[in-house]
Simulated scan of single mutants.
Amino acid sequence: MNLLLSAVLMAVPPSSMAVMRWEKRILLVSAPDARDSRLNEQRRIMKRWKAEAEDRDLVVVEIVSGSVTGASDDAAALRKRYRMPAGDFSIALIGKDGGIKLHKRQPITAETLEGTIDAMPMRRGGAR
């Protein structure tokens, strides 16, 4: 039975960002291609900060070239909505309320993410 449950869960496509609202904070990372050094630096930061990100209900959604991972949304629609140019690196921290809390053109350090998230009212208020 566990094998069947695992197979079903793996087959479930990622949620849209709208569905994640009020449940997750989102780090939206956009890069022109997978070779972008800033994309790879942000991935290294998040790999080292994985447990802390999970504790803060933070998920990563990446837009690389025309593909989206971590959400079911369309790449062009996300870039337009969050003002992320297709030809450059851009990153946005989106709060549980759906608002942009931080927008940068360079990788965001773990310390900056931690400080920004921990200062959010929902995090301070105990709602994580």
Rank of each mutant, 00 (worst) to 15 (best):
A31T: 00
Q42M: 05
A110Y: 06
R48W: 05
R81T: 15
Q106I: 06
L102D: 01
I91D: 00
A127L: 15
Q42S: 04
M1W: 12
I63L: 04
P13H: 11
R21H: 09
E54G: 06
G125E: 08
R124W: 11
W49E: 09
K96T: 03
I117H: 02
L3M: 12
A34S: 12
A53K: 00
K96Y: 10
P121R: 14
I63G: 00
L28E: 00
L39E: 00
A34P: 02
S6R: 14
N2K: 11
I108N: 01
P85G: 05
A86S: 14
V68G: 01
W49K: 05
A31D: 01
S72W: 13
M120Q: 06
R44K: 15
E111L: 13
R35Y: 13
M122Q: 03
V8D: 07
W49V: 04
S65G: 09
L3H: 11
N40P: 06
A11D: 05
R79L: 04
L9N: 12
G126P: 03
L3K: 13
V8W: 13
K80Q: 14
A53M: 12
A127W: 11
E114R: 15
G66V: 13
T112L: 15
E52I: 04
R105K: 12
K50C: 05
D97N: 09
S15P: 01
A76D: 11
D74T: 02
G95D: 02
D36P: 02
S6A: 15
